[in-house]
Write a protein that binds this DNA or RNA. Sequence first.
DNA 1: CGAGCATGTGACCAATGGTAACATGAGTCA
DNA 2: TGACTCATGTTACCATTGGTCACATGCTCG
Lengths: 215, 215
Amino acid sequence: MPAERRKPAEYHHGNLRDALMRFAMQRIAARGAPDFTLRELAAEAGVTHAATYRHFASREALLAAIAAWGYRELHAREAAAQAEQGADPWARLLLLPETYLAFMLDAPGAFRIMLAHPWTDGETWADAHAARAESYALLEETVGACQRAGVLPEGNPARLIAAMLGVTHGLASLWLNGQFGVVAGEGDATALIRETVCASFEAFRASDPLLWRDA
Amino acid sequence: MPAERRKPAEYHHGNLRDALMRFAMQRIAARGAPDFTLRELAAEAGVTHAATYRHFASREALLAAIAAWGYRELHAREAAAQAEQGADPWARLLLLPETYLAFMLDAPGAFRIMLAHPWTDGETWADAHAARAESYALLEETVGACQRAGVLPEGNPARLIAAMLGVTHGLASLWLNGQFGVVAGEGDATALIRETVCASFEAFRASDPLLWRDA
DNA sequence: CGAGCATGTGACCAATGGTAACATGAGTCA
DNA sequence: TGACTCATGTTACCATTGGTCACATGCTCG
């Protein structure tokens, strides 16, 4: 008589995969790093660690699945927000970092894998790569629209994109790694991040076009 | 007769500690993550893995030592560059990201631990924390000098600092994780990074002071 | 020269990621 | 209904890893 099984039929129908991903994300968020053990995830799901290999080829594949899910979810949220926004390109652009940061607060575990994990093995991370490319494409397109509308300076869009992605990503990364206290004391870090991103974007918008032109 | 020993007396006098750190940084840079095994580091040094514990209390302590070294080295380079620069605060400020990015190219292995590793256990990472704080303090001070000199907009310095640290750190982080191709194609990434950081700083400098004022 | 201490060794341990052969149960089709 | 089958999960196993401990070795300094 095996002790204490999970609720019958809770797993055994595809739920295990999702459950493992959820548990993993929780642990990552809690511990600040993908430190979890496949065995502890399995135990939390009421399952043997070998069962996990029915759903993920390896530990790293689990991480890759999380990253892919994260980028797809992010892209979906961005697209949805833009859709209900209207046509103003500048407003649509500002929605992107806002959605990005909101999602980071919702799913910090996924975010850490998305941002700060070296996706070494192309094979297992192929899906994540594709998902990420979608999200980047949206940024690229929106920046282009802003430039065409004259609301962002002309010049090499790659530089503008890099600058915007840089601030957003950089602040997110600092927050995720708990490095924010050093720069900002102990105030409301998330508010400071939002305000800083906003101010930076405005500064870019109003900046001298010469800055972004190639040499 | 033990096979193939290291050159006699090469270790046994404090060199092992440094050698292990060097090897570890090489592996981190090569593999893009602190994947190395204590055993392989020890083997590369011609030593048993147990010997490593004479110099580092744990694997994580090795990482912490690398991070601490990195921040101390970074701070030293920044201070040196500023010292030979002169008194112009804006020039001194621009030196910081420049030194930062140059150091990243010199020591990508250390950088990855410095930026993208969760320093969970305060005990083992205490030294790294202290070293990092020094480096941040320099940025804070230089920004303050710029504001007093009227070359940076008044307003909450925390926001300006966050913005500058954000771009720099964000672009560095993207580069370290190989995410730069997505945004910039396959050009000279490091040049693009430098130019983008420079343009961003100029944009911040020339921006409307209202942007950085608290609400 | 001899003692002491830092450094390195060898044997050992529990835990981990991963594999393979076996078990079980839900759905399908005769 | 009953047999087949495939997905899912289990048991047992393996090599490797981080870590510890008692023991060896060899600088260094009194």
